[in-house]
Design a protein around this nucleic acid. Structure first.
Lengths: 110, 110
DNA sequence: GACATATTCAACCAGATGGTTGACGATAGC
DNA sequence: GCTATCGTCAACCATCTGGTTGAATATGTC
């Protein structure tokens, strides 16, 4: 009834969550470390991580006291295929991608 | 403050709106014709079209009594670049895209 | 001008969303 | 066992969202 794409796109619609994904692109992170650069509460970030996990965009694994978050890029495949089908865009332009990430991270820290 | 990507992804998060975009992929359409296959009210579809227009995904042009809706695929480019940057996915797989569209349109008519 | 068609607007409603704070459960270290 | 740390849960709040219905606006036709 609810399409997986619903959850993926809804998860991506929030700038905080996109910033979190960008951070996880670098490396796996503990929840506390994910929350550190944001001015919102840890509980709010925990909720965001829940939304990302429900969409399949990340997985969380407890190791001792710490819960590690890992990006699951394959979960974006369906959504990416959907969008490419509309635009028939050029192949991956990583320079443009870098620019977007910087722009978004700047906006986050404002 | 609000990123354009926010609006694009939020617009794509709704299955009715994705179905509308798929319909417009075929050809430009009048608002009434867009609404026809859906069981919701015309006013609801009009709101969806407003969301899509705000995100830049469609444009609307009045010609006489009728307002024509046109897909603006270029507006997906930024979002597509963002996603491809994460997944480094294969180039466009149009077969997979067709399957998604069919799946979504089936779900819409249920 | 009167009427029909096409579309939006306004007011409303129920439910989701993103945020907060404070309490709670789980684990590590002393 | 006590205590500090990591993270979630629960309750609450304001705002957004997707839907409705009925009125309003704009255009075409007679």
């Amino acid at each position: 009834m609810t399409n997986p794409l619903d959850h993926v796109f809804a998860a991506l619609a929030d700038p905080t969550r996109r910033a979190i994904l960008a951070m996880l692109l670098e490396d796996d992170m503990a929840v506390t470390d994910v929350a550190e650069p944001f001015s919102t509460s840890l509980a709010a970030i925990s909720k965001h991580l829940g939304v990302l996990a429900d969409a399949g965009l990340i997985t969380r694994e407890r190791r001792g006291r710490v819960i590690w978050c890992r990006l699951e890029p394959d979960s974006l495949r369906a959504a990416s295929v959907w969008m490419q089908g509309f635009g028939q865009f050029d192949p991956v332009d990583l320079d443009a991608f870098e620019r977007f990430l910087e722009q978004e991270l700047d906006a986050t820290s404002e």
